[in-house]
């Protein structure tokens, strides 16, 4: 698939900045950001990104709930979602995949390898 617009969702500004710097420096994708699940749904509705990098633990609405909302909406149900999480136990990762995510990236991640990591899940 061709990625033109990617949405990065994380409540931690440091993580957002690292992921954004990596993607903007290494790809020509347009980067959108959001800090909570609720804000992510708003950005998705108005900007329709090609792919979403979604944190799991966030205030207001967590990543799993946000994914559920996206899946329930016919307009957003096909947007691939990749979780980015500090929950690294096998059963947690398996649960995220079962929930419908295309992939899971564990923190800490290597920002220099991030674009390739994302591509590996959607190509």
């Amino acid at each position: 698939m061709i990625i033109q617009k990617i949405l990065i969702v994380d409540d931690d500004p440091n993580i957002r900045m690292i992921a954004q710097t990596s993607i903007e420096g290494l790809t020509d994708w347009q980067v959108l950001t959001a800090t909570t699940g609720v804000e992510a749904l708003e950005v998705v509705a108005s900007q329709m990104p090609d792919l979403i990098l979604l944190d799991v633990r966030m205030p207001e609405m967590d990543g799993l709930t946000a994914l559920k909302h996206l899946q329930e909406n016919p307009q957003t149900t096909l947007i691939p979602v990749i979780f980015i999480t500090a929950n690294v136990q096998t059963h947690e990762i398996e649960a995220y995949i079962r929930s419908g995510a295309k992939g899971v990236i564990c923190k800490p991640f290597d920002p220099l390898a991030l674009p390739d990591h994302i591509r590996s899940f959607v190509q």
Binding site: D12, N14, I15, I18, A19, T21, S22, G25, A86, V88, K107, P108, F109, D110, P111, L112
Partner: peptide, 16 residues
Amino acid sequence: RTPLTAIKGSLRLIEG
């Protein structure tokens, strides 16, 4: 993990 992600991420971005 969260601060380490920021530390290592920043260093790798500078290194790269």
